[in-house]
């Protein structure tokens, strides 16, 4: 960091290194290819009729893998301090709290799923008819 001026000079890197057009491509390029492969897999799974409506769960599982790859390599979590991983993790854990306790309500409501949600249209018309 023995730099007297800021402009025009970026550290004491070898000149050749500074002039080269691209930084080392690995591992980012490999990860990128893996992400593309996973994208294609996800599309195939989505159209795979044997899974029916549950295909979305498989797609989300693939998305989780892709997200992990993006975080680790594209967002450099690999070389980040532990506290940064903790920050990201806190976001995910609190998301789980939000999902979990909210669903704890919806999944335990009386009757079939969604039954508590029916707008009381018929009940109203009955009441009106009774009047």
């Amino acid at each position: 960091m023995s730099r007297a001026t800021q402009h025009g000079r970026d550290g004491n890197r070898p000149a050749a290194d500074r002039r080269s057009l691209l930084p080392p491509l690995m591992p980012e390029l490999g990860v990128f290819l893996a992400l593309f492969a996973l994208t294609a897999t996800s599309v195939l799974v989505a159209f795979w009729s044997a899974l029916g409506g549950l295909a979305i769960l498989a797609c989300l599982a693939i998305a989780l893998v892709m997200a992990a790859l993006v975080m680790t390599f594209f967002m450099h979590l690999r070389s980040a301090m532990a506290v940064m991983m903790l920050a990201g993790l806190a976001g995910v854990v609190w998301l789980a709290i939000l999902f979990g306790l909210t669903m704890a309500d919806y999944l335990t409501r009386p009757g079939d799923l969604g039954a508590s949600m029916q707008t009381p249209v018929k009940a109203e018309t009955k009441a009106e008819a009774a009047n």
Binding site: I97, L101, A104, D105, Y106, L107, T108, R109, P110, S116
Partner: peptide
């Protein structure tokens, strides 16, 4: 973990 105690009378499931 406690927010639902504002909603006891709202129609929230009794188990929740």
């Amino acid at each position: 973990f406690v927010w639902g105690h504002h909603m006891f009378t709202s129609g929230q499931s009794m188990y929740a």
